[in-house]
Write a protein that binds this DNA or RNA. Sequence first.
DNA 1: GTCTGCGAGGTTTTT
DNA 2: CCTCGCAGAC
Length: 784
Amino acid sequence: MTSWIDDEAEALEAAVAPLSARAAAARPAPYLDGLNPDQRAAVETLDGPVLILAGAGTGKTRALTTRIAHLLHTGRARPNQILAVTFTNKAARDMRSRVGSLVGGVVEGMPWLGTFHALSVRILRRHAELVGLKSNFTILDTDDQVRLIRQIVQAHRIDEKRWPPRLLAGLIDGWKNRALTPARVPASESSAYDHRGAELYAEYQDRLRTLNACDFGDLLLHVLRILQGHPDVLAQYQRWFRYILVDEYQDTNVAQYLWLRLLAASHRNICVVGDDDQSIYGWRGAEVGNILRFEKDFPGTAVVRLERNYRSTAHILAAASALIAANEHRLGKTLWTETPGGEKVRLIGHWDGEEEARWIGEEIEALGRGTRGLDPVRPDGIAILVRASHQMRAFEDRFLTIGLPYRVIGGPRFYERQEIRDAMAYFRVAVSPDDGLAFERIVNVPKRGIGDKALQEINRTARASGVSLLDAAGLLVANGGLPPRAHAALGQLVDGFDRWHAAVRDGHDHLELAEAILEESGYTDMWRAEKSPDAQGRLDNLKELVKALGEFENLQGFLEHVSLVMENETDEGAEKVSVMTLHAAKGLEFPAVFLPGWEDGLFPSQRSMDASGIKGLEEERRLAYVGITRAERLCTVSFAANRRVYNQWQSQLPSRFVDELPAAHVEVLTPPGLYGGGFVAAAPGRSTLADTVAKADVYNSPGWKRMQARAGERPVSPPREAREMVIDATASAAFEAGTRVFHQKFGYGTVADVEGDKLAIDFEKAGRKNVVARFVTAADAVPF
DNA sequence: GTCTGCGAGGTTTTT
DNA sequence: CCTCGCAGAC
């Protein structure tokens, strides 16, 4: 089990010996060609702390990978002396392959290039005993974590309704992100769970140790503890890792920051790359403060700013820059580009969310044909970026209707599906019979008549005899004491695991074994017998799972991989439009980007603002910035006046971000296109973008009518509604408190308050709502 | 121990 | 509205 670890240690120690004087400066470095001066500085400033502030699209990854190539080329470090940290497996893979192509594949591997978590596992396996674990500890996924916490909460007789386990799991995660041990949890945050939050946390840690398991946060924290408590170990790693590079530094949390600071403390050869304007993971513990503070933490830092953008046109860049300028706490960058003008950012308002989806569908088809003087944009060059995943449905529905190929990125992930987790739990017990959590998961899946009662009995026996759950189950079967049905079923299961574990030990072909486990346990039969429509899909997934096993040498290797790599298979290369959340879009780029749903409350999200106030709003604004800067040539922002939320119509106000877009770089479109002139005069003294969009007379245009005729199959917003909107807009100045009004979706009501064109109205049926004046008519004007 | 009906709640997500 | 999780009936 530990052999590779020892080999590696040897290799690393050997590597510490002075490098041969293999001519650094003398040899040419072709990879430097084509870098701009800033990028060169980022690559060539090798010693001491370096902070690379890399705006969107400025060649950040290129700088980082070239820097690694340069370290290798100049002989500053061998591949295994570079610690390169990323956040996602995808980023790690990208970096690996790009370094490979830069140095011509001469360099064998880079063992210490990976995610914080993967690297931590590597370190932790070597020193597990220092934190009371065995080196074959298991890594819990969120599911296991919550189940374990539920047990603890139940044991304390705490009301699960009031204090859901999931909430505590979230709190514990938050504490771990901040590197807080149970003893250090501030009293003020422990008030939940009857002031026993920290106590429950401590108990959870005890349980983990007993189970020889870690959750994700522990991977980092245990390594921290080891490095802090064992100077000799720390010194060893500091010697091994001569150069440290960190990608997406703005996303690091406190624990990760401490982790890095320890490892970099001696030589301080740490280079971090990031963009404070793209920090969008505050809600899961990322500390923008880390990057804002870097220069203070590492005095003498060389700061390199990458400000030349190679991705977007000038208008897109200007719009993004103006928007993000509204944020207060920034390091500040001035992005520039030599790509001239191009299309302005397009802005369009719609009647409702369905029309928005319909319009975007048509735009995509138009883009495919080549429109507005642009070269045709193929589907895979187009992305729709939404704030929240529920927004994706409208697009999926629409695209299915018109037969537009699309893919959703970031849906439920393969390894998080129930059937996959169940199967994996079987594998886990077969590999490590001690894995109690996995055993509990599948002991009654498929139904074996082993319910709470029997499980309690197993648990009691396990505790009494100090053995694992599986062994306890074996004891119970041997000694009797269970109802006949449970007895027989459990006996069969225990026998099964005996067999399967033996097969693992004997090195049986793991593909065959996996299939046998799923068959003999009755697991696949369970799904075959299931009548529900998705049962077949689940069986297919299981086949897929077994196939994926083929890429690994054995079950252990596979399980280890999956515990750290929970990502989806991406069918890349397909000619499909991408639909994803803004979060998922970070790091990607597309010729054409659609940003729908820019409405207050949806984006910026009300919940973010409620939870974190101005800080939350600023993070939302960064999200908007990330969205716009994904676009290379065409960026289209849209919002709808009405949206169905939980099947209730809700009137929406345009996002404040719409008004923050600079008018000079924005073109206001008239939906659905064509030549309907906006005849509603702009109200004097007001000229925000949102107003401009509202005033364009959309619905009286010939284009609109033609569109409706064409749409045929399904009635779109009735023209009368639309015409009324226009009438309303004209009359909007006239509303005053007390006016009786009518709204298409909410019915009759009375104006309670007027603020500009925004009205607070008490509706008779729907209660108090905030509505833009143009969506409302004076009650007597309704033609009934 | 398993099945059915009722009520609550319903951002973002990687490892 | 639709999904999930829990409590009560078989």
